[in-house]
Design a protein around this nucleic acid. Structure first.
Lengths: 204, 204
DNA sequence: GTCTATAGCCAGATAGAC
DNA sequence: GTCTATCTGGCTATAGAC
């Protein structure tokens, strides 16, 4: 196995620092409002140095998304190891995890409208690959849960999948946190209830 | 009663045309990506003329929000006249209406992050008044529905209210419409199910 | 109130020395 | 690869003639 040079390690650490800043700023302000100058200032390097690592603002966002999707894949892998849990429980655990990430201010929020960003993302192999992997694993659990009665079998799996993704960046979380009336754990439990049991029915 | 001059009527029609364009562009691209040049081009007037009617881009967005909130208040008034409907039915009707507006490409989407926009909105009396009115009427229905068993009494009304607002600009709608596999009416019915009955339980 | 033209600013991205 | 300094373009907003 090839040894990694000290020089490469330093680079890797620096890129990690960049992505941490990008991730936080994307979660705070969103892609359109975030500026590359802010990122550079937050990392503590010159803007030109940033562009030696990432060739555009869109690439920065894509790299941040790849990192968060990798974290998600790690979560999925850990959950798959739990053979005792039902598929519904595993899906709830995923939703809980995404809400925790969002409450921690670490969920990057990308606008669906920005076309320059969209085309950069869909042509980014690393991003598309990971997004596909996450979707496929969730899809497996959704279909299984529909068959064993954990999820409503009348809704298309596609709708369930989109809904879970959407709840990972639901603005309701931010509103409730800003209100300050509930703990993070209370917020998560309430939103898990609204997501899986709806507004109408009382939890079992 | 004072007669409205012809001149004022022309102005009023022009401002309506401006707001229609702003509303559509806000729904399509969002506030940050929309430019005042685009609005002027869409209306077919010079940008400087726009600024004679509205003093800033934020004022444009606020006026568009006021108009959509007025439409919402009209809906609420019509629903209140239906004495036979339960409060749950009325809330579902409101949610259905907001989804129809969104599918029609007429729901302006404003980013929660942009601080210049936020301060312009919260200091806009017309906007705040209407938002308060809508919230209060929905709050009345929510509390009543919780008391008569239509809605889960364990969830704070505040959480229900935020959730209903959030569903009015839920990205899931756009994703499903872009997919092209379902009719508008099918999309709305599915999302009403996920919102009120959740992903887990089958509808009654 | 409408227009053309432009001011003023700030963003993303780059040049070139070290 | 890092920096300082700068380019380039697009944006909001305004000046000033009609």
């Amino acid at each position: 196995m090839a040894r990694v040079s000290f020089r490469d390690q330093v680079l890797r650490v620096r890129e990690e620092a960049i992505l941490t800043s990008v991730n936080r700023l994307l979660a705070e302000k969103g892609f359109d409002v975030m500026t590359v100058d802010e990122v550079a200032a937050d990392v503590g390097i010159a803007k030109a140095s940033l562009y030696k690592h990432f060739s555009s603002k869109e690439e920065l966002a894509a790299a941040a998304m790849v990192r968060v999707l990798d974290r998600a894949l790690g979560q999925l892998g850990a959950l798959m190891a739990d053979k005792a849990a039902s598929e519904l429980d595993q899906l709830k655990a995923v939703a809980r995890w995404t809400m925790q990430v969002q409450l921690a201010g670490e969920m990057p929020s990308l606008p669906a409208q920005n076309s320059a960003l969209r085309s950069a993302l869909i042509t980014n192999r690393a991003y598309v690959d990971r997004l596909t992997q996450v979707s496929e694993q969730l899809g497996v659990w959704i279909v299984a849960a529909q068959q064993n009665g954990g999820l409503n079998p009348q809704l298309p799996p596609e709708v369930m999948l989109y809904t879970l993704f959407a709840r990972a960046c639901d603005p309701v979380l931010g509103l409730l946190k800003a209100g300050g009336n509930y703990s993070d754990e209370q917020i998560i439990e309430m939103l898990l209830t609204t997501c899986f049991d709806g507004l109408a029915s009382a939890p079992a």
